[in-house]
Write a protein that binds this DNA or RNA. Structure first.
Lengths: 341, 341
DNA sequence: TCAAAATATGGGAACGTTCCCCAAAAATGG
DNA sequence: CCATTTTTGGGGAACGTTCCCATATTTTGA
C-alpha cells in the first residue's frame, strides 16, 4: 500500500490552475507568469513533488536510462569500469541500470530483455565468456537502440567498440619476460570464444617469434577462467621435464592464483619463473611478490563507452559511426618479474 | 530516432481483435480461447513484442524495481553484496537500479532522489562515511516506500537493518591477537560517524579489558578510510618508544596497506607485529603474509536485505516489522597472526 | 428446447505526463 | 481608445498498458 504521491494535478487543484500550466512551470517553459511560476515551484517543493518519470518516458519515448551489462562482479575489473561509466552517464543526466550475470549466458539474455522491457535508451555491454549467440544484442539494433561493446567485444556485430590494445600489450608483456632472460614462457590463455583471449595469445606468439624463440604448443593452455583449475595447470607446467621459466597469464586473478601455487611448489619468483598478469587488479600490488601486469584504464573504458553511446542516442541510426576506440595500456613492472623492481 | 516498437494495439489490429483480448492473452488471464491465445502469443513472438514496463508501472503503481545504494565500488566489499542482492531480487522477478557514490554525500542524495523519481518499489542502502543528515532517506519512508539498511546502518531511522556482529567479531579478533601473545595491540579505527566503527572499537576495548590489558588511547587512531593515510599512521605507531606488537584494522584494505608499510619498515609479521583485518576481502588471501581477517557473508547480506525488503513491499506500512538481522562472521586465521597457519 | 450459466470478446476509463491548439487577458502602438 | 500583438492559461489528445463493465457467444442441464 503505497501512499499517494503528489502529481501535477494535485498542485493544479490546490492553486486553481490547469495541469498544463503547472507542467509548463515545472519544465521551465517560458509562457508562464513569474508570479504563477514561483507559486507553483514553491508548492511543488512543499508537497515534495517528484516528477513521475514513467509517464514522461511514456510520452517522450525516452527513459534517460542506459543499461550496463557485465559478465561478473567478482574481480574488481568490471566494477571499476562501471564507476567510470556511471560518472559519465551522470554528466548527461542519465541513469544507469546495471546487471551482472555471473558469466551465465542465459542470465545475460534475460538481463538484456529486461533492459529492453525497461526501454533503456541504449546499452553498453561486455560479453560472457560463453556467449556465442548474439540474437539478444541484435534485437536492440533491430529496434534502433544503440549498443556499444567494451572489452569483451563481438566481431560479428557492427557496433562501436571500446577495447585495449590487447595484442600490443601482450606482445610487450612477453617481450619484457624475454628481456629478463626467460626463454621458455608458458601462456595460460583465456577461452578462445573471447576475442581478447585470441589477441593476447597472438601477441604472445609473435613476441616469441620476434625473438626467435620456439612456440611450444605444450606451453599454451586455454582455460575457462574458472580459477580453481589454475592449480592443476600450473602443477602440470612445473612437473614438465623442462618446465617453463616464464608465465604470461590471461588476467590478474589467474596470475595471482598461479603465484600461490608456484610458491607452494617451492619455486622462487622471479628467479625460477617470472610471472606477468593482465589488468592491474586492485590486489595485484598487494600480493607477494607484487605482480608485474598490464594496467588497463578501466574507468576510462567505462567513460569512453558511455560517451560513444551518448553520441548515438539522439542520432539517426543511419548516421551512426562505428568507431573502434583502442585505449592504451601500460606495463607495470613489479617483483614477479624483476626482483626489487 | 527510435523505430517503432510493437505494442498490443499492433497485435490487436493484425488479428482483428481488441487490445483487451491481446492484453489478457499476454498476461495469462484465463478468459481467452485457447486458439486465440496461441495466435496472439505466436504473433507477439514473431513481432518481437516486449511489454512496455513504463505503462505497466504507470497503471499498477509498481515498477518491480528496487534501488541499491552503496558508498563505493573500489574495494570488492559492496560488489559482493550486490551480487547476492541481485540474485535474490531476480527470484522475485524484480530488477535493480544500482548506484555507487564514491563516498560522496551529495551524490548519495542525488542518487536517492533519482531512484525516487524512478519510482522504485523500495531501496536497500549502505551509507556513505560522511552521511550525517538522513532527510533523503526519510523522504522514502514518508511516501511509504520501504527502506532496508545493511552494513553501514543508521541508528536514527526506524527501518529493518542487516548487519554483522561487529562487536563480537572485533572482540574475537582482538582476543585472537592476545592469545598469540600480543600485549600492545593498536587499533586503526574507522570514522566515528559509522556505527560499525564504534562497535568494532568497543569490541576491541572490551577484549583488552577482559584480559586485563591497558587501553592506551595512543594506540587508537580513527581515520577517514582514505588509504593513502595509512602509511602515516603505521609509521607513527612503529616510531613509538614502545611500539605495538599487534594491529587490529577496521577493514581489509586498511590492513593490507598496513602490511605493506610494516614490511617496508623492515618489521616481521607476525613476529614483530600481528595484524588482523576485517571483511575477508578478495585480495586478503593473496597478500604476503596472508591476512588474518573476519569473514563477512557478503552475498548473504545482500540476499537478506532484499528478502526483508520484499517482505515489506506489498505489506501495509503499519504492519512493517522492524527486524534487525545480525549475520555471523568467522575469524579466518592466516599468516599475518600465526606463522604457517 | 430454452433459460441459465459459463466463456469469450469489446469498449472505454484510468495512470501522470507533455504538447498542440485555442481562448482570454494584458500589453502595445498609432 | 481600439485594433493588433504578445503573454498567459485552459482543454484535451496521446503515450501503452490494465481492468472493470457490458455484450456476444457457447455450453450446460432439466
Amino acid at each position: 500500500m503505497k501512499s499517494h504521491q503528489t502529481t501535477i494535478i494535485d498542485i493544479a487543484r490546490e492553486l486553481k490552475l490547469s495541469k498544463s500550466t503547472v507542467s509548463r512551470a515545472l519544465t521551465g517553459h517560458p509562457n508562464v507568469k513569474q508570479q504563477t511560476r514561483v507559486a507553483i515551484l514553491e508548492l511543488a517543493e512543499k508537497m515534495e513533488y517528484q516528477r513521475n518519470l514513467m509517464s514522461v518516458s511514456l510520452i517522450t519515448n525516452k527513459t534517460k536510462t542506459i543499461g550496463i551489462i557485465v559478465p561478473e562482479f567478482v574481480t574488481s575489473f568490471f566494477s571499476q569500469v562501471v564507476i567510470g561509466a556511471q560518472e559519465e552517464a551522470r554528466k548527461s543526466d542519465y541513469n544507469v541500470l546495471i546487471s551482472q550475470c555471473d558469466e551465465d549466458y542465459n542470465i545475460e539474455v534475460g538481463n538484456a530483455q529486461l533492459m529492453m522491457r525497461n526501454r533503456v535508451d541504449g546499452i553498453i555491454i561486455s560479453l560472457t565468456k560463453e556467449t556465442k549467440n548474439f540474437d539478444h544484442i541484435k534485437a536492440f539494433q533491430r529496434r534502433g537502440i544503440p549498443v556499444v561493446f567494451f572489452n569483451r567485444v563481438c566481431d560479428e556485430i557492427m557496433a562501436p567498440k571500446v577495447m585495449v590494445n590487447d595484442y600490443d600489450a601482450a606482445f610487450t608483456a612477453v617481450e619484457h619476460l624475454i628481456k629478463t632472460g626467460k626463454r621458455r614462457i608458458a601462456h595460460l590463455a583465456g577461452p578462445p570464444s573471447l576475442a581478447i583471449s585470441r589477441k593476447r595469445q597472438n601477441g604472445y606468439i609473435d613476441a616469441l617469434k620476434k625473438h626467435h624463440l620456439p612456440v611450444d604448443e605444450d606451453l599454451i593452455i586455454s582455460y575457462d577462467l574458472n580459477l580453481s583449475k589454475v592449480k592443476i595447470y600450473i602443477k602440470h607446467f612445473m612437473d614438465m621435464d623442462n618446465p617453463p621459466d616464464g608465465l604470461f597469464a590471461i588476467n590478474d586473478p589467474t596470475a595471482m592464483e598461479a603465484l600461490q601455487v608456484i610458491k607452494q611448489l617451492g619455486k622462487r619468483i622471479p628467479e625460477d619463473i617470472g610471472v606477468v598478469g593482465f589488468s592491474n587488479d586492485y590486489a595485484s600490488r598487494f600480493v607477494e611478490p607484487s605482480l608485474t601486469t598490464v594496467a588497463v584504464p578501466l574507468a576510462e573504458m567505462g567513460r569512453t563507452a558511455v560517451k560513444l553511446l551518448m553520441d548515438m542516442i539522439d542520432t539517426d541510426p543511419a548516421d551512426w559511426k562505428l568507431l573502434i576506440k583502442v585505449l592504451d595500456t601500460e606495463l607495470i613492472i613489479r617483483n614477479s618479474t624483476v626482483r626489487d623492481a
